[in-house]
Deep mutational scan, measured.
Amino acid sequence: MTFKLIINGKTLKGETTTEAVDAATAEKVFKQYANDNGLDGEWTYDDATKTFTITE
């Protein structure tokens, strides 16, 4: 399955995708991506669209 991450950061904005077997796996990938890029914010997830959002 394809999951999307929408980034609404103070300095970084955009989106990225990952292929994962489930939402929990995708969340780990996206949280590592956010950590690697210095993002810290509030996370939301929409199961209907398989989309995570981080807002700083």
Results as ranks from 00 to 15, higher is better:
A48K: 10
D22L: 04
D46P: 00
T44Q: 11
V29K: 11
A24N: 08
E15C: 11
E27N: 06
T49G: 04
T11P: 04
T49F: 05
G41L: 02
L39C: 04
A23C: 08
A24M: 14
A48S: 12
N35W: 13
N8I: 15
D40F: 13
D46R: 03
I54P: 00
K50L: 09
A23N: 05
L5Y: 01
N8G: 05
T17Y: 14
F3D: 01
T44P: 00
T17A: 08
K28I: 10
A26M: 01
A48Q: 11
F52K: 00
T2G: 05
A23E: 07
Y45W: 04
T18N: 04
A34D: 00
T44Y: 10
A26F: 01
V21K: 09
F52M: 02
K4R: 14
K28Y: 09
K10T: 13
D40W: 14
T18L: 08
K13N: 09
T17P: 02
G41H: 02
Y33V: 05
E27D: 05
W43E: 00
T55H: 08
D36I: 09
G14L: 14
T2E: 10
E27V: 05
E56H: 07
D46H: 06
A23M: 12
D46A: 04
F52L: 01
I6F: 05
D46E: 07
A24H: 09
T25F: 08
T18I: 15
K50W: 05
T49L: 09
F3S: 01
A20K: 03
N8V: 09
T2L: 12
K4C: 07
V21A: 12
V29F: 15
K10L: 11
E27C: 09
A48C: 08
Q32C: 05
K31R: 14
F3E: 00
D22Y: 03
A34G: 04
G38H: 12
N8Q: 12
D22C: 04
T17E: 09
N8F: 12
T51S: 05
E15D: 07
I54M: 06
K50D: 03
T16E: 08
T53Q: 06
Y45G: 00
A26T: 00
G41M: 03
K50M: 12
D40I: 15
E27R: 07
W43I: 04
G38P: 01
E56I: 14
A23H: 09
W43F: 05
T11A: 09
A20Q: 13
I6P: 00
F30A: 01
E42R: 11
I54Y: 03
I7W: 15
F52Y: 05
L5P: 00
K31T: 05
G14S: 14
T16W: 15
A23F: 13
E56M: 14
A48H: 13
D40Y: 14
N35Q: 15
V21Y: 14
E27A: 12
N37Q: 13
E42I: 14
K13P: 06
I6C: 05
A23S: 13
K28H: 07
T49N: 11
A34E: 02
T11C: 10
G38V: 04
K31S: 04
G9E: 03
Q32Y: 04
E42T: 10
T51N: 03
T11L: 13
T25E: 12
F52S: 00
Q32W: 05
N35M: 15
E27F: 15
T53S: 06
K31H: 08
T18P: 01
G41P: 02
E56T: 11
F30I: 01
T25Q: 08
T44H: 10
T16A: 13
T51C: 06
T18C: 10
D36H: 06
D36M: 10
K31A: 06
D22K: 03
K31G: 04
F52C: 00
G38D: 09
D36W: 07
E42W: 12
A23I: 12
F52E: 00
T16F: 13
E19I: 15
T16D: 03
N8C: 08
T2I: 13
L5A: 02
L39H: 05
L12M: 14
D36F: 07
K13D: 05
F30M: 02
F30N: 00
I7M: 07
I54H: 02
D40N: 12
L5N: 00
L5S: 00
N35L: 12
T11W: 13
K4F: 13
E19R: 08
I54E: 00
A26N: 00
M1A: 10
Y33N: 02
G14K: 11
N37M: 15
Y33A: 02
T2D: 07
L39N: 03
K50E: 03
E42S: 09
L5V: 03
M1L: 15
T53W: 09
D36E: 13
D47Q: 08
A26K: 00
K50Q: 11
T44N: 07
T55I: 07
G9I: 15
V21I: 14
Y45H: 02
D40C: 12
Y45D: 00
T51F: 03
D47P: 14
Y45L: 02
A20E: 04
T18K: 04
I6G: 02
K31Y: 06
W43Y: 02
V29L: 14
L39T: 03
N37G: 04
A48D: 13
G41K: 01
T53L: 05
I7H: 04
T17C: 07
K4I: 13
A34H: 01
V21G: 11
D47V: 10
T49S: 13
D36Y: 08
F3N: 01
I7T: 04
V29E: 07
T51A: 05
K10G: 09
N35A: 14
E15G: 08
I54K: 01
T2H: 10
Q32R: 10
I54D: 00
T51E: 05
Y33Q: 03
I7Q: 02
M1C: 08
K50C: 06
V21T: 13
A20D: 02
K31L: 09
A26I: 01
D40R: 15
E15N: 07
T53Y: 10
N37F: 09
I6W: 04
T17I: 10
G14M: 15
A23Q: 09
